[in-house]
Each structure stands twice: as structure tokens, then as C-alpha cells.
């Protein structure tokens, strides 16, 4: 078990290195740079641009640029933002990252809390009214794009019913303690459910299918032949086996959540990494784009690592090879 985890962590290192290359190359491959927008101004002579490019190191050979970037990132220096002049990338990200973490965790919580029980219930009552209802909901959820679901949620629950705030993370400044927590939670409800909708829908289907598949296995017949109650056949013997593929999918879910957050945050004017990412792309603020890409990639890697470790905990067949 320990060996397995150590091996998986060691595999992490070359992956990380490859990711930095891809992140850097992608940023460089995009047309234009941070000065492109300003070039439209005819009053500034071309030499000025060249001087500024030289100063920013944009004229260096690409390998040199990569090395400079990589060595500063390795020491924790993510560079300076170009759109918010003078502010460090780290500072911009720090101000927003926790909001995105809260949003993603809330959405993940919504997914797990709804998808797994509904999936189990659907599977145990296959072709019942409940099952058909859940299936209809699942397809609706999968077919509705994030931004549309978000707008709908804002209109119905924010505007018409007025149950939940539909913008930002807090209502007023100066809240603290429990009040602040509840206020933040309230602000999370609409974007959180919106972000979790598609995942809830698909995980519900996965869970249902897995349960039905495991129910047909020989070892379930054995469990029944032992005289076990329906409850322990379902929750002990079926569920644990049915959860195995779900764990793998959850590892990938981190990526889905974070990329979904980009759109959801925009719709709800929620100040997180997603919003920062979008404005950075619009302003060709490459240091910020690269930093966020790197963070996303590392999060996905960690998600997969956690999934693999957790998988090994749950499935004894993985541990010993």
C-alpha cells in the first residue's frame, strides 16, 4: 500500500514537468501578446513597443523565456500581471482561489448528496415512476448548458421568488463569524447547484447502471444464498463494488468542476478564479493565464492521485500488483 502510494507520487513529478511545457507552449502559441491591444494607438512610435518587449524579455529565445518562467514559478514567483499593472499574479489568485474552492466543493457536495442516493433508489426500483422521473431529470440536466441553467436559476430563485442572492459572495461588508458563514453559504446556493447540475445528472445515471450491473453478479447471488437481508446485500455487497468506477470518475470530476466554474462564475458575477481567467484571456494577460492553467492542471493531477489512492483503499485487487 505505501509502496503503491509512493510510486504514484513519483509518477506525479514527470507529469508536472510535462504540464509546464504544455502550459507555456500554449500561451506562446496564441497570437499576439500583451502589447497587441495598445499597438492600435498611432501616436506611440514602434520603437517604444520594441523597448518594452525587450524589457519584458519577450524578444528572448523561446527556451530562455521558458527557463526564466519555470525557474521563477519553481521558487513560487508567478510573475506580474499585465492587465492590473504592478500587481503580482500570486496576489490576484490568492484573493480569489478560495471562492472557487468553496464553489467547487459545494457543487461536489451537491453531486454526491443527490446523485448517489437517487441512483441507488432508482436502481432498486427499476422502471418505477421514481426511476422514470429521475431518468427524465438526468437527461434534462445533461442537456441544459451551464449558462442557461444559471440564468434560469437567477430568474426563478433570485428574481421571481427572491429566495437566494444571485450575485457575488457576500451581501454587505462587515459581517463576521456565523453570520458571515451563513451569508457566504447563501450566496453559494445558486451557483453551486448550477455547477453541480450536470454532474449530478450524470453520476445519478452511473450509479444506477453500476448498481444494476453489480446486482447481477455471481457474488450477489452467493450473498442472497447465505440468507443475508436485502439491506446488507445492497449496502454491503453491492454498493462497495458499484462505487469503484465512481471513484475513478470523481478523480476526473475536479477538472470538470473547475472548467465549469469559469462559466458559472461569470453568470453569477462570482469573484473566483474562473472570472479572473476569462478577463485575463480577453486582455492577453499571459502570466495570469499560465498560472491559472498550471493550477488547474495540478488540481486535476491531484484529483487523479487521490482517486487512485482511494481506489486502492476500497479495492483490494489494486493494492498488490
Amino acid at each position: 500500500m505505501h509502496k503503491y502510494i509512493i510510486r504514484r507520487i513519483l509518477q506525479f513529478i514527470p507529469m508536472l514537468f510535462l504540464i509546464t511545457i504544455v502550459v507555456f507552449a500554449l500561451a506562446k502559441a496564441a497570437p499576439g501578446d500583451v502589447l497587441s491591444g495598445e499597438r492600435l494607438d498611432p501616436n506611440i512610435p514602434a520603437e517604444v513597443y520594441d523597448m518594452r518587449r525587450e524589457a519584458l524579455g519577450l524578444n528572448d529565445h523561446i527556451t530562455v523565456q521558458y527557463w526564466n518562467w519555470l525557474s521563477s514559478v519553481a521558487t513560487g514567483d508567478l510573475g506580474t500581471s499585465m492587465q492590473y499593472t504592478g500587481r503580482s499574479v500570486a496576489e490576484l489568485i490568492n484573493a480569489r482561489v478560495m471562492n472557487t474552492v468553496y464553489l467547487s466543493l459545494f457543487a461536489l457536495g451537491v453531486t454526491l448528496a443527490f446523485a448517489i442516493p437517487i441512483g441507488i433508489y432508482s436502481a432498486t426500483r427499476k422502471y418505477s415512476l421514481f426511476d422514470y422521473g429521475a431518468t427524465t431529470f438526468a437527461f434534462l440536466g445533461l442537456a441544459t448548458p451551464n449558462f442557461f441553467a444559471g440564468l434560469l436559476a437567477i430568474y426563478v430563485f433570485g428574481f421571481m421568488l427572491g429566495w437566494f442572492p444571485s450575485q457575488g459572495t457576500v451581501s454587505t461588508v462587515g459581517l463576521s463569524g456565523m453570520e458571515l458563514f451563513l451569508d457566504k453559504l447563501k450566496h453559494l446556493v445558486l451557483p453551486g447547484f448550477t455547477l453541480g447540475l450536470a454532474s449530478t445528472a450524470s453520476y445519478m445515471r452511473y450509479m444506477r447502471t453500476e448498481i444494476l450491473e453489480v446486482k447481477g453478479s455471481d457474488f450477489i447471488r452467493t450473498a442472497k444464498a447465505k440468507g443475508l437481508s436485502n439491506h446488507s446485500v445492497l449496502y454491503k455487497h453491492t454498493l462497495r463494488n458499484a462505487l469503484l468506477p465512481i471513484i475513478t470518475l470523481l478523480g476526473l470530476e475536479f477538472g470538470t468542476l473547475l472548467s465549469g466554474a469559469i462559466i458559472t462564475e461569470r453568470v453569477f458575477s462570482y469573484p473566483g478564479l474562473g472570472q479572473l481567467f476569462l478577463t485575463s484571456v480577453q486582455n492577453r494577460d499571459y502570466p495570469v493565464i499560465m498560472a491559472i492553467n498550471l493550477i488547474l492542471a495540478i488540481t486535476i493531477l491531484i484529483g487523479n492521485l487521490l482517486a487512485d489512492i482511494f481506489y486502492a483503499v476500497v479495492d483490494p485487487r489494486i493494492r498488490y500488483d
Partner: peptide
């Protein structure tokens, strides 16, 4: 089941719960 009647199945590979 399991108390008065015990049962053995054909496929020992799949008849035991792997986890």
C-alpha cells in the same frame, strides 16, 4: 438460506465478493 441449506456455485472466481 445459508442456515438450513448451504449452496456452492459453479464459478469460484466470481462467486466470492472481491472487496
Amino acid at each position: 438460506r445459508g442456515n438450513d441449506i448451504g449452496m456452492i456455485f459453479q464459478e469460484p472466481m466470481t462467486s466470492l465478493n472481491p472487496v
